[in-house]
């Protein structure tokens, strides 16, 4: 019986630590894309925590929203930001070369 309690506690402590670690790296890491992937992993871990707290309703909501929607939403927004950054850089470099031929707008 004692082994069981110890193992359960070990699992809980590991889960809590990994949760904090994932959140910390997601919020303070340098690479933004990595932060988004870590946030997706964070959502999954959070769902596991809700299962451990005997709240399957919340786990279902967290999985449906965290795994399905937030991840896609963030990745999509990130791609939009990156893409327009690239476009702007390309525009500026082409504009400096052929400034006169373009009509200002």
């Amino acid at each position: 019986m004692e082994t069981l309690t110890a193992l359960t506690l070990a699992f809980d402590v590991l889960l809590a630590l990994l949760l904090l670690l994932t959140a910390g790296f997601a919020l303070f890491g340098r690479n933004l894309f990595r932060a988004i992937v870590l946030y997706i992993a964070f959502g999954l871990l959070l769902a596991l925590v809700w299962i451990r707290l005997d709240a399957p309703d919340i786990a279902l909501a967290e999985i449906a929203i965290g795994a399905g929607l937030t991840g896609a939403l963030l990745l999509s927004a990130w791609a939009r930001l990156e893409r327009s950054d690239d476009n702007q850089a390309a525009d500026e470099s082409s504009q400096s070369g052929q400034d006169q031929t373009r009509t200002p707008h």
């Binding site: 809980d12 402590v13 809590a16």
Partner: peptide, 8 residues
């Protein structure tokens, strides 16, 4: 467990 996750 509950206290642990609350503190987390």
């Amino acid at each position: 467990t509950a206290l642990l996750y609350g503190l987390t």
